[in-house]
C-alpha cells in the first residue's frame, strides 16, 4: 500500500487536516491583526485621520 493511499485512506488524518488548516488560519489571522494594531506604536508626527 503506497504512502499516498495511506494518507488519504487513514481515518483521522482527514479530520486532522481540517483542524490544522483551521487552527493555522486562526493563528495567522490573529497575528495579522496584531500587526495592524501595532501600526499605532510607530512613531508619527500627527495622526493623519480621525
Amino acid at each position: 500500500m503506497s504512502l499516498g493511499y495511506w494518507l488519504i485512506n487513514t481515518a483521522g488524518i482527514g479530520g486532522l487536516v481540517v483542524v490544522v488548516v483551521f487552527l493555522v488560519l486562526v493563528v495567522v489571522y490573529a497575528r495579522l491583526l496584531r500587526w495592524i494594531l501595532d501600526g499605532g506604536k510607530v512613531e508619527e508626527p500627527t495622526d493623519a485621520r480621525q
Binding site: 494518507l7 479530520g15 488548516v21
Partner: peptide, 19 residues
C-alpha cells in the same frame, strides 16, 4: 474530525468551507 479520511470529497468540503 476524529475519523475523517481525506479521500472522501466531504472532507474537502469541510476543509475548504471552514477555511
Amino acid at each position: 474530525l476524529v475519523f475523517g479520511r481525506f479521500q472522501s470529497p466531504m472532507l474537502w468540503d469541510f476543509t475548504c468551507i471552514g477555511a
